[in-house]
Design a protein around this nucleic acid. Sequence first.
RNA 1: GCUCUGGUGGUGUAGUCCGGCCAAUCAUCUUGCCCUCUCACGGCAAGGACCAGGGUUCGAAUCCCUGCCGGAGCACCA
Length: 524
Amino acid sequence: MNALDEAEKRARLEEIAPERLAELDAEDEGEDHPLPDLPNVEDYDEVRMRCAPNPNGPWHLGHARMPAVIGTYKERYDGWMLVRFDDTDPETKRPDLDAYDGILDDIDYLGFKPDEVVKASDRMETYYEHARELIGLGGAYTCSCSGEAFSELKNDGEACPHREKNPGVVRDEFEAMIDGEYESGEMVLRVKTDIEHKNPALRDFVAFRMVDTPHPREEAAAYRCWPMLDFQSGIDDHLLGITHIIRGIDLQDSAKRQQFVYDYFGWEYPEVVHWGHVQVDAYDVQMSTSTIKAKIEAGELDGWDDPRAPTLKSVRRRGIRGQAIVDAMVELGTSTSDVDLAMSSIYANNRDLIDEETPRAFLVRNGFAPRSEGAEAAYAATEVPIAGGPETAHPPVHPNHEERGERDIPVGDAVLVETADLPDEGERVWLKGYGPVRYDGDGFAYTDDDIDAVREEGVDVIHWVPAAGSVPVRLRRTDGDVYGYAEPGYADYDPDDLTQFVRVGFARYDRADEDETVAYYAHQ
RNA sequence: GCUCUGGUGGUGUAGUCCGGCCAAUCAUCUUGCCCUCUCACGGCAAGGACCAGGGUUCGAAUCCCUGCCGGAGCACCA
């Protein structure tokens, strides 16, 4: 009934309330977006956002959320995306020189292109300029209290003696900080907020401190006086025209702290969205840069792309599309509560993306080297002589796409099958893509049964490879390495090619070593 | 201790602002069936949730109160 006069209703609405019609259309479009609307988008000419990673190491899976969500919003609002490396801690979170390009590479893998890339460590003079200005406005003071001493005063809501220091002295001491005349811990510049603020986290926070360790980037190695995140990031967000900040709840109080700086300068604070922490299931290794780094150094992981590492390099090597990760991250939304990301949803997304285009191949498993706790699997292959049938098998490249042709697998005198698939003596089995055989205890004899044997008589269909000419494969899984033999055609694959090993799962061809070919397992 | 912030199936999410159309959406997941040269894809079906207790109301996932549980900040880390 209602559907019948939908068009009529629209026409009528157009007449009496065109603005309402536009609203309806906007609502309809909104249904396609898993992510909630960004706040107050209409107040800005352009939605400008930033990813602000600390380049202190390669990215783990959780890091993907930042570009995934921000990049998706960028596409949705036709906005602008900055990648800004917040590398202002040369010591505790010391930047890793390879991480700058590594992160950009990961963002590219996820399918996004930043409109601009900057490094905070290139912008030091800008931060100094603004600090000078802030001092001029009476909004900051140099302080030589020890951390503990200040903390104690602060917790009691009491100002330290340096707070009312003569502005000229503050100016001189700050210049001395810039000139590196203090050592680490001797002097900081604090933002004057409200020392009695009911939230102790907001009271007179540190804007600059001394760091003795030189920055690893040559261009920034001479600086000793470094801004803290709250100051640097706050200044940059304004200067770079950021309209929407999207970041984790750990920075919840940051906006409130930075608001004080913005107030001194008379700036408007951007819109902010905070999200909770992400945990990913399916990994034994904790998702943290330092933990992964430690495990690699201890030899427990082979590297950042070890299949057991919850890193982007790892899933990438397994042949999982960046898009699958992005989709999963976007589905998580931007809730402030902590969320668990199920790898199965990444796998489901990936399967959606690759199944149609991925060719099939046989892999007969024979051996397993577990590399994680509780992993168990027993795979064994049996060689069985075969006689009486055609010389070659022709299974399709893809069961849903006849037009892609057939694989040609020579059978030879014997085949390998997984021992668990071996039928009882006297029973038949259907070698997939080849035909029916009867097992006589020693070998397979081709029978003349047609496919009805499978359809109506319940003969099992199993995968197999020829005993001669098959490709020894090591299939690297998150729980260990599976050994086996792939059909001869697998020798023609190139690195990055995907295949679906029938009844085993999707895998990415990695390389051909001298004695074996290495593939990485993605998922079933 | 102080200050924020959150709690819908196994997981994620919609609904919460403006109480009824919610015996709660969608996806993933699990199970069963169908399709198929046993995978994957596809189709069908089933399973599974409003943190607890009070209150307001004709009516509460939605509003109020209390409790419980969780996360974050109070760094010269980001």
